[in-house]
């Protein structure tokens, strides 16, 4: 009896999600002690208001990485969709929510382009999305002639980015809806099951009759559509649509996903892990801005919070990777030893 219980506590501790929750608690504790006004309602709602876009990208990136792929183009897609959205509203007078819908569809279209190249031509996702990373951003820059930006959106639209709804930032509700939908898809549908199968062994999935190309395509299309949505929300928050919207967001999103324990090789990982990874990053980002009594390199921490949080993010990711790899190697060694001692006669006797 006791052995089964200790086993389950051990396995709970070994779970990536548990470790992340501990990391998050530690962060909260640290920032609350060192910082000013960290655990204050307004600040907390800011934490999430400012990182909803990255959260959206991270959640949508999860299925892509589960299939063993990657999408570097989502940040650029945000730029392109933001610009298109701004043009539609500002120049052609479309109502913002209709334009938002078109932006999302356009994102899906861009994701579809990635999908076609990756699944139909069997090209490596890394390099295809590197190409569209450049292409989408380039089109955004070309459309705005490298400098123009669009603003002057109606107040009712800007509320999406700045107002509160039921005590929480308005956009967080959109995020909840998307995260819930993707959680359902990944964990409760055959589509999600097939993502894992494809990520573990895409040939094996094909031999089992899973429509590998179609399902993989869906993951990229969804990622593109969510990037479009993230662009609209970003524009609503900033009140301005620019070609540089979302620069570098793809890396932050991938960081959140990998930090959340999703295997970059595909197959294993959870949406909950991604969410925790994202929360850990968001709190780190915000918490450092609250520390003004301590100095680092002769600067108050708060004034170098961005750089510091970036640095810590990178180190955290490296640590997570190295620890994960070491644990895996140890587990394999232990399993081998066990299987040997259990079932074979002592070679010293014979």
């Amino acid at each position: 009896m006791s052995s089964t219980r200790s086993f389950s506590i051990k396995s709970l501790l070994a779970r990536h999600e548990t470790v992340l929750v501990l990391v998050i608690l530690l962060e909260v504790l640290l920032f609350q002690t060192l910082g000013k006004n960290f655990l204050v309602g307004k600040n907390l709602s800011n934490v999430f208001r400012h990182s909803v876009e990255i959260g959206l990208l991270a959640v949508a990136m999860t299925p892509v990485i589960l299939t063993g792929g990657i999408d570097l183009s989502v940040g650029s897609m945000m730029g392109l969709c933001a610009v298109l959205f701004g043009m539609m509203v500002n120049r052609f007078g479309l109502p913002p929510y209709l334009a938002g819908l078109v932006a999302v569809l356009f994102g899906a279209l861009g994701g579809g382009m990635n999908a076609v190249l990756i699944t139909r031509l069997n090209l490596p996702p890394l390099i295809v999305t590197l190409g569209t990373f450049s292409l989408f951003r380039g089109l955004a820059e070309a459309l705005t002639k490298g400098a123009e930006s669009y603003s002057g959106f109606p107040k009712s639209f800007l509320a999406l980015g700045n107002a509160d709804l039921a005590g929480l930032p308005a956009q967080i509700w959109v995020f909840f809806a998307v995260a819930a939908a993707i959680w359902l898809m990944v964990h409760q549908t055959t589509l999600g099951r097939s993502f894992r199968a494809i990520g573990y062994a895409s040939e094996g999935a094909r031999y089992a009759g899973i429509p590998v190309a179609r399902n993989t395509s869906l993951a990229y299309i969804i990622a593109g559509a969510v990037a479009g949505l993230a662009a609209v929300i970003l524009v609503a928050r900033l009140g301005e649509a620019r070609a540089n919207a979302g620069i570098g967001y793809e890396l932050l999103a991938i960081t959140a996903v990998v930090l959340g324990g999703v295997s970059i090789f595909g197959g294993s990982g959870t949406v909950a892990g991604t969410l925790l990874g994202w929360i850990a990053l968001a709190i780190l980002n915000n918490g450092l801005t609250r520390i003004s009594d301590y100095r680092i390199m002769d600067q108050p921490v708060a004034s170098v919070a961005r750089e510091l949080s970036g640095l810590l993010t990178g180190l955290l990711l490296l640590a997570a990777l190295a620890i994960g790899a070491t644990m895996k190697a140890l587990a394999i060694r232990r399993a081998r030893k066990q299987s040997l001692s259990k079932t074979t006669p002592n070679p010293a006797i014979s």
Partner: peptide, 15 residues
């Protein structure tokens, strides 16, 4: 091609 080693056998059987 036959069995996805990382996945539970139940998932493999219904694949």
């Amino acid at each position: 091609h036959g069995v996805i080693l990382e996945m539970p056998i139940a998932h493999n059987m219904t694949m």
